[in-house]
Design a protein around this nucleic acid. Structure first.
Length: 428
DNA sequence: TCTGGGGTCCTGCGGCTG
DNA sequence: TCTGCAGCCGCAGGACCC
């Protein structure tokens, strides 16, 4: 579902089985995952162009069926453009909870093979099957069995790349989509990689591709032959050496089942641009509540609060502040975010997006905590935990700060209170 | 054409400190 | 006391990923 999938080409012709003896890494990627899940409940849409994505004025495509892709529709494309390219497409709003449920079931299947499962997103993961060979057979056989189980148990298809490294396995799965399996033998990595366009490499996005094109480099093979020092001079030390390594198929990263979160954030694009500071502040409050609740649910607290402000012309600025102590309290996050917003001097500027993020995370139970002089013994922390419990029992809208419910008390639907702020209307 | 929302990582700069 | 330097940290911006 990524931009990289536009690089997809038909896989190699069937032939004798490839040598998978040096290939313990599997990359499993669900095919058009969000669409596939929707089709489980709407089988009548099979074979038709289907798009899952934001249905608002500023939505983008989250996933497109292969039929829709034939019209040029792809993920991250503005929905307005997608509708123009494929007016007959059926457009469905995303249902992330539903996808998360199917994803969890698929990942359970993965874990019957190996505990070394590294999720990349809801719809893809790396598996290290080196330890499963004696029990389940060679990697290619394990991959085939996995694909079969996912199809049988969940009714959706996936593609699997089998290789010696994560990076090559990922390219292999992209290459054999949809519903495919591709083994890249350890001694065939260069032959596989070098004809590919440079944009196939991890870390080469639009900008880097432009820079490489300016250097006359279009394929991975061409890039591989450029001296390391030249790449580092043109792209920076880290990116230069990273691309040099990848171009030779070198990627020593192991499959890591769980990496701790480094930041937790939330952001919102308004349906129309907003220049009313009161509405912006209310949105910051809503986002701070959301981030605080997610921090507490994950058991984390963070020291750095940052806000993101995107103006009507798409210019984006961020402002951050590091606190003396880590926090997981929405109140602290909100106060800090508001001060950062006010300090940015954008109070009469039209904004299209605001975001709040907390970084420098660590376990909340190990965070030092000093009671402020004016803080009662039972204070905001306890109040917010009580809110968490109410939300857990009755749903996330059951209890909220007064500033976020005023409109609902005027006899309007709760959901509209939020939509109101997104519309840029004054909801005080 | 008109660009979501969740993240990670890198770079450059300036301030602080020993 | 002042200066130069290195290392660290905080901050801001940007590129990239799914």
């Amino acid at each position: 579902m990524s931009r990289k999938q536009q690089l997809h080409r038909p896989g190699p012709q069937p032939g004798p089985p490839a040598d998978d003896s040096g290939c313990p890494i599997l990359h499993v990627d669900m095919d058009a995952f969000f669409v596939s899940v929707e089709l489980l409940e709407r089988p009548e849409l099979r074979g038709r162009p289907v798009i899952v994505g934001g249905v608002g004025a500023r939505g983008v495509v989250s996933a497109a069926s292969y039929e829709a892709r034939e019209y040029g529709v792809h993920s991250a494309m503005p929905m307005s453009r997608a509708r123009r390219l494929c007016p007959q497409a059926v457009v469905l709003p995303p249902r992330h909870k539903r996808y998360a449920k199917v994803s969890a079931a698929v990942f359970e299947i993965f874990r019957t093979v190996t505990p070394l499962v590294e999720p990349l997103s809801l719809d893809e993961a790396f598996l290290d099957v080196a330890g499963a060979r004696r029990r389940l057979g060679p990697p290619a056989a394990i991959a085939a069995a996995l694909r079969e189980q996912v199809r049988e148990q969940q009714g959706i298809t996936c593609s699997v790349g089998v290789a010696s490294t994560k990076f090559v396995a990922k390219l292999a799965s992209t290459r054999c989509k949809p519903d495919g399996l591709l083994v890249v033998p350890a001694d065939g990595v260069e032959e596989f990689l070098h004809p590919l366009p440079v944009a196939a490499l991890w870390g080469v996005g639009e900008r880097t591709e432009e820079a490489l094109t300016r250097l006359g480099l279009r394929t991975v093979g061409q890039l591989a032959r450029v001296p390391l020092a030249t790449l580092q001079r043109e792209l920076g030390n880290a990116v230069g050496s990273h691309l040099n390594e990848l171009s030779w198929g070198r990627d020593p990263r192991p499959v890591v089942p769980r990496t701790p979160d480094k930041s937790i954030g939330a952001e919102e694009t308004f349906a129309t641009d907003v220049d009313d500071p009161e509405i912006i502040r209310r949105e910051l409050l809503r986002l701070a509540e959301k981030v605080g609740a997610r921090l507490r649910a994950s058991g984390n607290a963070g020291r750095t609060v940052s806000v993101k402000l995107r103006m009507a012309n798409f210019k984006t600025i961020t402002r951050s502040r590091t606190l003396r102590e880590p926090t997981d309290l929405a109140r602290v996050i909100y106060i800090t975010a508001t001060e950062l917003y006010e300090g940015a001097g954008l109070e009469r500027v039209r904004l299209r997006l605001v975001g709040v993020r907390v970084e420098n995370l660590g376990p909340a139970d190990q965070a030092p905590r000093q009671l402020a002089l004016d803080e009662p013994e039972i204070g905001w922390r306890e109040a917010e935990r009580a809110m968490d419990q109410v939300a857990h029992r009755f749903g996330s809208g059951a209890v909220r700060p007064a500033a976020l419910v005023r409109r609902a008390t005027h006899g309007e639907a709760e959901g509209e209170a939020r939509e109101g702020s997104r519309d840029g209307r004054d909801v005080r």
